[in-house]
Every structure is written in structure tokens, then in C-alpha cells.
Nucleic acid binder design. Structure first.
Lengths: 143, 143
DNA sequence: GATATTAGTATCCGAAAAGATAGTAGTATC
DNA sequence: GATACTACTATCTTTTCGGATACTAATATC
């Protein structure tokens, strides 16, 4: 039995509100590139092509879409510089800092979960490091 | 400018490790039904058909798959009871409680974000309540 | 005038996630 | 013997996501 529902009580309305709030939060971080993008920009502003190079294999279409998503959520600001061939710089907003505690919690939990899976399966570290996160999270019992 | 990268420094390796850990965490919560399912079971153990009824419009195929995912991640335990027509009960494990602080952070952030969006757009509350979370999070500027 | 660089957009494509619909095995009831 | 309930599984279709490839407009360089 669990205590997950204790803090807010467990009325249907409270649960739905919680689910919706958590979903809102997950939604803004979701997809393959949001996190790499945020971490990449956390080292400083970058231009479009610089981001593309730093992420390696993202296509311009996807990068453009992801940057627009981040802009809509006010994590990233897009600045067009009036240079000869125009340069566009993207940088994290102060608001993006509000994510830090959430990301910190997710990171802590993710690392602990990975350790649990490693312990549970007694798999050698090297083998674990070779697995993708998807495999790790989706099929821990298979390790 | 942001301070997102400060706590762990910003070496390439540290960033990748963080991204992977956060991704691990997001992965186990991802998909349309994981959260409703967890919240539903947080009120107590339920049988397959009871879960289906409580979630409304999930198909048995999807429900079965989601429950298996949760079982693999050790959030849910599946117990087969030797009754006349067999009954199967699903319940949250003690390990699922480890999610509570993560979910609490996500909930807090999600609620604050929604409020920010509401303030930013000065949209009437009723209009906001009519929107889906996807619309809210994906296109806040359109409110 | 040909080529390169800027920051993208347009079109098509394949994989994966989700859903609709139907069926299954075992038991019990009418 | 027909129907219903249990907990699913099988098959097919739709929707969504991400990617490959090619292209654009404006300026600058060779």
C-alpha cells in the first residue's frame, strides 16, 4: 500500500487537478530534444547553427520546432541581430531557472532508480552503461 | 542568463549524465495513462475491470500494456487470486512512494506555470478551464 | 556570375504510440 | 445449451513524432 495520495487527500477533483498539473509540467519537458536543448543553452546563448552543431544530429526542422515550443513556454528568448547575414541568438530566460528544482528532483530520482535497477539485476556496470535509457526504464527486469 | 547548470558544473559529461538521469525519470512517467493509473491506484488496490471503469475510456489493450510497464518499473504489483473466475488485483508497491517528492515538485511547478500563463494572457478562468493541458502547455501564447 | 553562409521552411516518409473492434479461456448462472 | 462474467490478447487503423532531403531569401565573397 502507498501513501502517494496523502498530501492532498484523494477526492476525485483533487486527483484530477494533480494529474493535470503534473501533466502540464511533464509536457513542457517532453520529447527527444527538450532536455539536451535546455542543457546546451544553459552554458550560454547560442545561434541556430551553433545549437545544431552542438546537438549533433538534430535536423533544422525539428530544432526550429523545439525552439518555438521553448519560446512559447517562455524558457527561451529569441533575439534577431541586424548583422549583414542576420544572426539569431537563443538564450534561456530567467523564468527557465524555475525548472531547476524540478530538474534536480528528477535527476536525483532518475539516478536512484538506475542504481536500484543495477542492484536488482546485479548486472556489471559496463553492461549497464551500454544500454539506452529506454531499455533501462522500459525493461529493467530484462537486465 | 540562467543558473540551471550551476549545481553540477557544466562539463559535457556531467550534462550528459544529468540529461540521462532526468530522461530516465521522465520515461517511467511518460505516456497518456501512467499518471491517471498511478493516482487511481493510490486510493487502494483495484482489479483490472475496476481500473478500466475508473479511467473511463482506456481500452483493455492499452491498460494491459501500461500495467505491465508499471510492473516492470516495480511501481505496481500484480496479484492473481484463485477465485472461481480468477480475479487479479493491482496495487502500488512501497517503492512507488519514492515518486512522491518528484510528483510533488512537478505538481507545484505545473500549477505555478499554469498560473503564470493565466496571468500572462489575462484570459478568463472559465476559458482556461475549457482548454486541454496540451493546448495550455504547447501554445500558451495563443490564450 | 558562381558559391557560401545565415536561419530557417516545405514535402515526403517511416516508426512508434494509441485506439477500435473482435475474439479467447475458464467458470458460473439461467 | 445459451449467456455472462473474469482478464485479458489479436488484428487493424489512425495519429503523432521525429527524420531525410531539398529548397528559399538575403547578403557576402571569389
Amino acid at each position: 500500500m502507498s501513501t502517494l495520495s496523502k498530501p492532498t487527500g484523494h477526492t476525485k477533483e483533487a486527483c484530477n487537478a494533480s494529474v493535470n498539473a503534473v501533466r502540464d509540467a511533464l509536457y513542457v519537458l517532453n520529447g527527444k530534444w527538450k532536455l539536451p536543448l535546455i542543457f546546451s543553452l544553459s552554458e550560454g546563448p547560442l545561434r541556430f547553427n551553433e545549437i545544431q552543431r552542438s546537438l549533433g544530429d538534430i535536423t533544422p526542422k525539428i530544432l526550429s520546432k523545439e525552439l518555438q515550443d521553448l519560446e512559447l513556454n517562455e524558457f527561451v528568448e529569441r533575439k534577431v541581430m541586424p548583422t549583414k547575414p542576420v544572426t539569431v541568438i537563443y538564450e534561456l530566460t530567467p523564468y527557465s531557472d524555475s525548472l531547476s528544482s524540478v530538474l534536480e528532483e528528477l535527476k536525483k530520482w532518475g539516478m536512484a532508480h538506475r542504481k536500484k535497477i543495477m542492484r536488482a539485476k546485479q548486472a556489471p556496470v559496463i553492461a549497464l552503461d551500454d544500454r539506452t535509457e529506454k531499455e533501462l526504464a522500459a525493461a529493467p527486469a530484462a537486465l
